[in-house]
Amino acid sequence: MGIQDRLIEDVGLRRGVSRLTPEKIETVVRSVMASEAGARLKAYSETCMRCGMCAKGCHFALSHPDDPSYTPAAKVAQTMGVLLKTGGRVDPGTFYGIAQLAYTECNLCKRCVHYCPIGIDTGFIMSMVRRICHKLGVTPQYIQDTAHSHSTTFNQMWVKDDEWIDTLQWQEDEARDEFPGLRIPLDKEGAEIYYSVIAPEPKFRTQLIYQAAAIFNAAGVDWTMPSQPGWDNSDMCMFTGDFEMMGRLKRRHFESA
């Protein structure tokens, strides 16, 4: 049992892997190891005693009780473990599995940290694997699309600049029927609370903004929402491994605040 026995088809992974060679993988793995992997990765990879206690902390492992290849330590062994052991020289087919595992079978929740006596952060190790995947262009299609959206609109759902403000004004309008005089104050300088959301709210769940506004209104607090991009506090680039875009998003969000 292992990742190679359960590969799924993904346009993004397939497309990325089709352009790889073992040499290219090796080059990128080595460069990430040289420039970004530090003491944490080294200490984690060395001191894991393979006690298996983390198995009870991982929902992927718990939901596959008969398949030990889903435990956090096993997932590290199948991804970063392979890359460290081989110095990154793996064939593209193997890398497909590594990427699939890193993106779809660990969601970086860090729950296993509560189960590891030594404090090994599997989520961190998986982020490093994802970082390598990003550098190699091997990312699942839909998460990569959200990363593209982030880079363009600074939100994850391709919500355009005007659609955002329009949505807030629409919800403000709707809410006024129920709460006369309710406001969603935009760009109010010096407000006590800066309310930020994630892009699925304006895109699919606009009533959440309505409800938040109703609560703020009833509580009588001094709040505001930004009219400019940067209002989305999510960051799918962190999850794809595009740390450069991650920094750009974080800066935009904080400077908007």
């Binding site: 346009v11 993004g12 497309r15 299609q141 839909y142 990569q144 699309d145 593209h148 363009t152």
Partner: peptide
């Protein structure tokens, strides 16, 4: 500006550059 429209989740078109 975006110089061409993008189909949903079209990674190749985006990475070819439309901005």
């Amino acid at each position: 500006v975006q110089t061409a429209s993008l189909k949903p989740a079209d990674l190749d078109a985006f990475q070819a550059g439309v901005f």
